[in-house]
Every structure is written in structure tokens, then in C-alpha cells.
Nucleic acid binder design. Structure first.
Lengths: 340, 340
DNA sequence: CCATTCTTTGCACGCGCGAGCAAGAAAAAT
DNA sequence: ATTTTTCTTGCTCGCGCGTGCAAAGAATGG
């Protein structure tokens, strides 16, 4: 009357290590060892187990594994600012490289209205091994107080700076980068730059702005005027730059717009061309930052600076797997095109 | 000599329901109920528990919860094709809305070289409640054979079609959309369209192409020529369209390029303007599909068609939470701008 | 006041696997 | 052949929580 044990073998895809163990004639722990690199197991058993696993369609349950081992091999990527195409580049690189090294990525959307706190909390509830805040604007101060920030094991600020002592910064070296841009502009004879920055909130530490401004004043003695656009978005940049240039006589006009990133630079070029009817770079030059794909298109040919994303991701892996525990700022690559 | 129980309270952030239970003077299960909506619990106990939890910095462990309940509230978003900015729009919408409804999102990068199989397997190992393949190219046939495809509970094809019977399609209604674009073009007097499609792999079911072609031939009796560009990428589109037009006399030239999506359309416009030196739309008009942010910029002003992403995401939620179990094709919105 | 009903609380068991140790098997050394 | 060393395997216990049921408590009706 009782069912034979064979018929109780799960067919709905939920094959456990016990099933494989039974099929291979070994214990559950030998199955586990077969799937673990560098485990102490004979070649023969491993082959038996792998064969049985393949036959049954078994794959280790990472959830149960995480629970038991207190290591999830999962990192949370926390971001907002989804209208900057550079985010896509960052996400592509991060997910691809992390995945190739066995790390899963939890994408957490941090809406602009709330702070990062809720996002961090959610991440910690999934037991991520680290949370990576990707180049987003947010108020640093919440990192001191937010429950989520305390609960998460490691906190990394990626492609951005934070003064918070509990975080690790991995970013492009903006000082070196902006100096290179400035040197290029000085060499090309530009003398009246305006820096076009993103939103002027206290939360955003605008390193590029100050890095450029300080270097420029040291080289020329002149202060660099700054305007802030309301969003990291080309639409906002068009408005901001149009306002800046609308009433200026040719003599008053800047001769180059140094933009905090490419998406602003592209808006700036659009404004110069389509709102003001001027030419880039003959009337006004433009530089960007990030080297998003569009910057290479014949419509823009933007002079910009490429962040070393692959290198930054390698550093992130070092931090995840090894002991890297101090801030890292890597140099990127200056990209000279036709916009300046 | 024995440590007082109080001192054993975890201070490293790993507060469990037991700790909260002890602090609140209730059982562990009452703590669980306090955090569960619609649970049978008195208001008084809930308040006590919440207060204690707040004091200790407790939040339920979703990993353990998933393991115990066989429900992870996690969906895998599987995608490749990271150089189409439309992906960013999709990811933004999906993560934001899913998150607001309590769903976490695992972003899985599916490299173009491999098939979706590995990505699906990885997702299934994390016990996702559903895997969502987002508008990516991949070979449908693997869905029949891939281990991961069998292991995953639900499989959704989002913003794309698949004939596979085990999947659920949630997409924009391309037939309606392309008809609307065709009607617009016919009304505006265009008569010699060329359809610019993405890569011509057997894996990509090019519904837009056939939807447009079939409707056009029904309306005019004329076949629509098709070219394929090698990537969903504006660089590839520039090459493809330049090749198409390079040797054509004005009389041979198409009068409108109907593109499979915006990123191809933008490449097409760049080719027409910067490689051929012609004007859009006076010499050649262009239409796209997706309505990516850039399409609204003054540099392009692309006529296109916006997918109903929010509506599609709502349908996805219905499928996740309720019983929706059949394909859904929603109408989007035709966007008329200056490129046609 | 007691019987009945509804609400609230506690509990045994299990989810699938990992750490760390101890027993067993095999290989090497004496 | 016996002892020692090395390799391989099995096992106990627990990770933090959910399910489903039973006990306890509160509320209701007669």
C-alpha cells in the first residue's frame, strides 16, 4: 500500500542533493563536495555524482547555501538616475564581470524622492555580501543613520565619492582627469570656459567641478564660472545652456562649455546648435565626461574622458573576495574628438 | 562564570526574530505575524513587536523566508543587448514598479555568445519566482531543452515574442503599431519605404518587419525592401544605411526608412545626414520604434512609437501575483515628430 | 454562570545546504 | 604484516523563518 520510494522522486524540478546522493549511491555531503571547487573528493565519486546530477537535472540551491554559509555571493547594485545612458554601460560591465566570477547582482531602484535607506534595507534583507551605490546622487549623511546601511556587510560607493568613513570608494580619479581636459583646452587656446554641472544639491559632491576650477585658476589666474542644470539629463542641459547663452553677446560668450558628464554635454551641444544656431566647436566648444556610446556618433563627436570601468570592477572584486579595504581612484582615458 | 544572557545579544546586525521575541516578551511566531500583512495578531502585540524590532534594528530575513515558504518574491531580469538605451528605460520601469510591490529583481547578464541557458540556470538556483527575458535576441529553441528553462517556475518573454509554448509573452502589439506607422506614411505621401531591421538571425522573430511589410503590400501592392544591420546599435545602423544609399541615384532612393527601433533609426538619421549629406525628412524620412529619450532631442525629433511599458509591467505583476496565464499584447502610442 | 464562538498565541517540523569533526578506507612507511 | 600518514566519506547540528495545527484567551449568547 505504501508508495515505493522510487516514485517519490520529485519530477517538478526541485531535485535536492539527497536525490542525487541516492541516485549516485553516496551521501549528501559527497554530492556537495562534487560541486565545490577544491573540495576533498575522489575523482571517481565526483564523476558519479556529476553524472547523476546531470541525469536528474540537479543544481545546488544557492539560497539554502547562502543561509547555511552566511555568504550569498550576491551584491546589490543600488542606483537611480536612470536617464543617463552611462548607467547602462556601468550596469553592463558590472553584471557581466561579476557574473563571470560567480557573483549575482540584485538591481535595486532607489527612487529620487526617498533616500537610499530603504534600498539598503531591502538589500540587507536579502543577505547581500555587499551593496554598491552606483554613481547616484544621495545624501551622504543617511549612511550614518540608516538602518540598512548598518545592516549591510560592506558598502561601496562606485563611480562617485563619499566622505562617509564606513564606505569604500571606487572611482575614476577626477582630479587627474579634469587636469587633462584643462591642459587640452589650454593647449588649444581656449580661455573662457564655463563649467556646466548637474544639480546643485548639498548631497552631490561635485569633485569634477572643483577639480577643474582649482586647476584652471592655478594655471590662468581666472575663476571658472559655473552653471547648474536641474537634472542629469540632456533636456535639462538644453534649458540651462540656452538660458546661459541667450542674452550673451559673442564677446561675452564662453568659448568652451566644460560639462560634468556626457549627457549634459550632449544637451549643451544641442542647445548651442539648435537653440542658438551656433556651431560646435567653431563658435563654442564642448567637452564631456564618461564617453557614452553616443558621444562617438558623427552627430556629436564629443571630446570626453572615459572612466576605467573594467579596472574599477576588478577592484570591486578584489574587495569582495580579498581584503582590499581602502579607497581606490583610477585614472581613465582622455578621448579627443571634434567638439573641442 | 557563565555569561549573562543579555550579553549574548548580537550586536553585529544579525538580529533574528528570536531576539525580538525575547525583547518583546512574545514568541518568535508572533514576531513573524507582526511583520506579515493580514496576519491574525492583536494590535497590542503588533505594536510591542514593532517597537522592539525598531529598537534592535531587526528586519525579516528574506532569504530564510524564501527557503521556508518556497516563495522568494524575486524575479530574474535576463537581458543582453546593453547598447540599446531602451533597455535602460525598461529596467527603470520594471525595477521601480516591481520594487514598489515588494518584488526584488535579480539582473542577469546574458552574454551574446552563450545562450540563455546558463542565465536561466543561475536564476533558478536563486529560486526566483519568475524569469523575465527582456527584449533580447536569443534562440527560442533552447527554451525547450535548457535545464534552466525547466527549473525556473515561470518564464516570461517581455517586450518580445516567442513561439515557445511554455512561456508567457508580454509585449507591445507590433501589428497595430506598424499599421499606424504605415498609415501615417501613406497619408503623408511616402511611397518608397525601406525597412531597416536588426540582425537577421533565425532566432530573432522580426514581427515588426513582417507586420509592416504585410500591411504595406495589402495597401499598395508593393513589396517593401528590407536591409539588416549587424547589431542593434547606431554604429552598425550607420554602416548599413550608408551602404544602402551610397550608390543610389536620387530616383532610386527610398523616401523613408522604417526602422525596427529607435537606436537603429538614430543611426539611420546620422548616416543620411553625415555620410550622405542629405536632409531628414526632406530628402529621406525616418521612423523608429520605442521612443527612447534621445528621440525627443532637437537633434533627432524622431517619429516613433512608444511601447506601453507601464501597462506591460502591470500585466507582469498580474502574472506574478495572480493567475494571468496567457499572452498579452498591448497597444502603445504613436509619436509624431519631425523626422517624417 | 456556563457553553459556544472567535481571536490570538505557541509549537513541532521542515526548507536545502554548510561547517567541522570523526570514522573509515587507502596509501605509504616501517 | 603492522603502524603511520593521508585521503575520503559520513554525520550532527544549525542557518532563520513559514506552515498548519492545537492550546489558550477573549468575547458572545443564553
Amino acid at each position: 500500500m505504501s508508495l515505493p520510494p522510487e516514485s517519490s522522486r520529485p519530477s517538478d524540478g526541485s531535485v535536492t542533493a539527497d536525490d542525487v546522493a541516492a541516485a549516485a549511491g553516496v551521501s549528501r555531503w559527497t554530492v556537495a563536495r562534487a560541486f565545490k571547487k577544491d573540495a576533498s573528493i575522489s575523482r571517481k565519486s565526483r564523476e558519479k555524482v556529476i553524472a547523476a546530477a546531470e541525469r536528474l537535472g540537479y543544481a545546488p540551491d544557492l539560497l539554502a547555501s547562502s543561509l547555511a554559509s552566511d555568504r550569498s555571493n550576491l551584491v546589490a547594485l543600488i542606483t537611480n538616475d536612470f536617464n543617463n545612458p552611462h548607467k547602462l554601460v556601468l550596469l553592463e560591465r558590472l553584471t557581466r564581470i561579476l557574473w563571470s566570477r560567480g557573483w549575482g547582482t540584485l538591481l535595486v531602484h532607489m527612487s529620487d524622492s526617498e533616500d537610499a535607506s530603504a534600498a539598503l534595507l531591502a538589500a540587507s534583507q536579502r543577505r547581500v555580501d555587499a551593496a554598491v551605490l552606483i554613481g547616484t546622487r544621495f545624501d551622504d549623511r543617511i549612511l550614518d543613520t540608516a538602518l540598512g546601511a548598518r545592516r549591510v556587510k560592506k558598502l561601496v560607493i562606485f563611480a562617485r565619492y563619499s566622505q562617509n568613513p564606513n564606505t569604500l570608494n571606487i572611482a575614476c580619479d577626477d582630479v587627474v582627469a579634469m587636469r587633462q581636459i584643462a591642459d587640452h583646452l589650454l593647449g588649444a587656446g581656449y580661455s573662457r570656459p564655463v563649467f556646466v554641472a548637474g544639480p546643485d544639491t548639498q548631497s552631490a559632491k561635485l569633485h569634477r567641478k572643483s577639480a577643474f576650477g582649482e586647476y584652471w585658476i592655478r594655471q590662468t589666474g581666472n575663476e571658472v564660472p559655473v552653471i547648474h542644470v536641474t537634472e542629469y539629463d540632456f533636456g535639462a542641459a538644453i534649458h540651462g545652456v540656452t538660458d546661459l547663452l541667450a542674452d550673451a553677446t559673442p564677446a561675452q560668450r564662453p568659448d568652451v562649455l566644460v560639462c560634468e558628464n556626457d549627457i549634459i554635454a550632449i544637451g549643451a551641444m544641442d542647445a548651442v546648435r539648435y537653440r542658438l544656431g551656433l556651431r560646435v566647436p567653431q563658435d563654442i566648444a564642448v567637452t564631456g565626461f564618461d564617453d557614452i556610446p553616443l558621444s562617438a556618433s558623427p552627430a556629436y563627436l564629443l571630446t570626453t574622458y572615459r572612466q576605467p570601468i573594467t579596472g574599477m570592477t576588478e577592484k570591486l572584486l578584489e574587495m569582495l573576495e580579498g581584503g582590499l579595504s581602502e579607497d581606490v581612484f583610477l585614472p581613465g582615458q582622455f578621448i579627443l574628438r571634434n567638439s573641442s
